[in-house]
Design a protein around this nucleic acid. Sequence first.
DNA 1: TTATTATTTTTGGCATACCAAAAAGATAAT
DNA 2: ATTATCTTTTTGGTATGCCAAAAATAATAA
Lengths: 218, 218
Amino acid sequence: MRPETIENYLKTIYNLSSNNTAVVSNQKIADKLSLNPATVTEGLRKLHELKYVVYEKSYGSRLTAAGSKLALDIVRRHRIWETYLAKELGFGWDEVHAIAEELEHVNNVKLINKLASILGNPTYDPHGDPIPDAKGKIQKSNFIKLSETKVKGNYKVMGVTDHSPTFLKYLEKHELIIGAGINIKTIEDFDNSIILVCQKKEVSISPKAAECIIVQTI
Amino acid sequence: MRPETIENYLKTIYNLSSNNTAVVSNQKIADKLSLNPATVTEGLRKLHELKYVVYEKSYGSRLTAAGSKLALDIVRRHRIWETYLAKELGFGWDEVHAIAEELEHVNNVKLINKLASILGNPTYDPHGDPIPDAKGKIQKSNFIKLSETKVKGNYKVMGVTDHSPTFLKYLEKHELIIGAGINIKTIEDFDNSIILVCQKKEVSISPKAAECIIVQTI
DNA sequence: TTATTATTTTTGGCATACCAAAAAGATAAT
DNA sequence: ATTATCTTTTTGGTATGCCAAAAATAATAA
Ligand SMILES: [Mn+2]
Ligand SMILES: [Mn+2]
Ligand SMILES: [Mn+2]
Ligand SMILES: [Mn+2]
């Protein structure tokens, strides 16, 4: 298997199993990588062979220790590049993901560590995702989705789970950026929209969008 | 053809036809890309099909206008990255080529122009090679090889034609770095070694090495 | 000019990464 | 428990990028 192919699979499995213990379905992988399910079945068989993945057919897959190590490495590269592009090169948080998607495959430890060092070894990327350190150690947080908040509560935006430019530009328009404080006013009976106040302006957030916004109680 | 494959061929043809008019042989391309000659024949047939190359069989190849444009673009990316790695990220001139070899395939105009702008739109890379501007315009120089110099002449090192770490480290050891002034003392009758003075120290340069050092009269 | 040598091309084949359609298996609904 | 619906796997097949060996062509030396 080509390194790039391996890296794309492992990163995807890592991202989809969030806590890194949950088993991941073929379909989810196929969706994320825009591949035919048949291709994913083949891919997983090979990754199992390579001992990067434990793949039990018709059940699901999870990373081995070796697979996890590799996955954390590429996740680190991706997120360091995103941070570098945003902080040092002036790109918007809606632009960095696509570029990092390519840069992440350039495997040079010295390069990534240098970028990280220039950035002051950041622990979070522009989307609020934690950045593994050079040894693969990653910050564990107990943030919740906006969709799981309680009415009348005060929260702070900590991250997003959707990196698409469309979504990120939409958030920016409402000033729902990382670090912004929000106050949940009420939930619409009709469609479960969340009405909240952010930067003194009232905003209505659809349930779908609320699923993609990560917050912390304050 | 995969973009990376196309880019590697076009860049190689460009580099091998220096003045960009000379025809390039299959063998030279095969050597540079570490490919079997049979593979190169196939590759050129496809690039001809794609109108990036004029390939006359059993004779040679040269770039079309479209191929030239693409080649200059990737040469720009390669050299801007090399310069950025050296000047902004602290890598040695012997390290940058290998990393740039991968980074050059990340095709994002805004990114490269940003890097160039941070560097002050440089016109030469760490090896003395000219960097095409955003429009593909490239500085033409009339430098000569150290092997073509005259005895008793005073010259300045302007570049190298070999980017291998071994060669570059060797040069560095003798302080034969870009910008260094040299004075040609004599040429050894026995093996045609060039005896010169650089930074007040006498150095003997083999004909093979002298072929790879670019200088200018002062 | 004729041989010798070097280069290029053709041929046949292999490995990887993918997909569409059919078959099998697992889940959910009635 | 049986059917209907998703999900996964199998099967057969394509496109790309590569190579080794043989055949053809070009360049060089005798
Ligand atoms: Mn991203
Ligand atoms: Mn991110
Ligand atoms: Mn280089
Ligand atoms: Mn260079």
